[in-house]
Amino acid sequence: MEQIMRLNEVMAGETHLVQDVKTDDEEMRAFLFRLGCYEGEPITLISKRKSGCVVAIKDGRYSLDNYLAEAIVV
């Protein structure tokens, strides 16, 4: 089975390319898309906390909760 990695398993400071946004929630996918988070785009994990993480997408900083972070496959 192919190993997939979710954003919440990434180490702080690492940049990865987004592979997929795995969710049933179409809204979530579309929302992330508008910020520039979609397949092939880089995403950097700036820091992690228990309830979520801070990421850099394009030239912006966002705080995501774990629900979102788990949906982003890198």
Partner: peptide
């Protein structure tokens, strides 16, 4: 680079700490 960690990120680490 926007992905570089800055002083701002360090402040964020503290003010968003649980």
């Amino acid at each position: 680079k926007s992905s570089d960690t800055t002083v701002q990120d360090k402040i964020d680490n503290i003010v968003t700490n649980k």
